[in-house]
Simulated assay, not measured.
Amino acid sequence: MVNLTKGEIALYDRQIRLWGFEAQHRIRSSHILVINFSCVGAEIVKNLVLGGLGFLTIIDSGKILEQDLSGNFFFDVSLLGCSKLDSTVKERIQELNPRVDIVTDTCTWAEKSQAWFNRFDIIICTEFDATQIESISRTSRSLNIPLYVVNTHGLYGMIFVDLIDHSSHLRLAKNRIRRKPGRSNSVREIVHVEEKTENDVEYEDCLIQNYYTSFDRILEKPKLKEFFPTMKKLNKIDSTLIVLLGCLKIPTSYNYPIGTVQVTKLELLEFANEIARKLGLTSLDLNDLILQDVARQFGCEFQPVAAILAGCLSQDVINMLSKRENPINNLLIFNGKKAEMPIYTI
Rank of each mutant, 00 (worst) to 15 (best):
L286K: 00
C300W: 10
D285S: 07
E301T: 03
A339V: 11
N255P: 10
I318D: 08
L234S: 06
Q15H: 14
D68S: 07
P304M: 11
D76K: 06
I275M: 03
L279Q: 12
L96V: 00
V40R: 03
R99L: 15
N47S: 14
N335I: 04
I290Q: 06
T131G: 01
S29D: 08
F215W: 09
V187A: 11
E340P: 01
K225H: 15
G311P: 14
L245A: 05
Q292M: 04
L219P: 00
R217M: 10
Q67N: 12
V150H: 02
P257E: 14
T197G: 12
I258D: 13
C125Y: 05
C247H: 05
E189H: 14
K225A: 12
T131L: 13
P181H: 09
L155I: 02
E134K: 08
F334G: 00
I343M: 01
F334N: 01
L50W: 09
I145W: 11
P146H: 07
D285P: 01
L69Y: 04
Q303V: 11
G62T: 02
G20R: 00
T152L: 07
E134Q: 13
F120W: 07
A310E: 03
V49Y: 09
G71C: 08
T126N: 06
E220R: 13
I32H: 01
V161C: 12
H153F: 12
E91C: 03
L48M: 11
D86R: 05
D288F: 15
L224R: 08
K223P: 07
K278V: 05
Y212N: 07
L172H: 10
S314D: 08
L266N: 11
E8W: 15
V149C: 08
S184L: 14
L172A: 12
T240S: 14
A130F: 15
T5C: 10
E134N: 14
V161R: 08
N47M: 12
L207K: 12
E202C: 10
E189Y: 11
G7R: 14
L266T: 12
G71F: 00
I27S: 06
H31P: 01
K223R: 15
F302T: 04
R178I: 06
V294A: 05
T264R: 14
Y203S: 01
H25K: 11
K196W: 15
E22H: 13
S29I: 06
I58G: 00
L4T: 05
S135I: 09
L80A: 01
D76E: 08
I35G: 07
R14H: 12
E66D: 12
N319L: 07
E189N: 13
E22I: 09
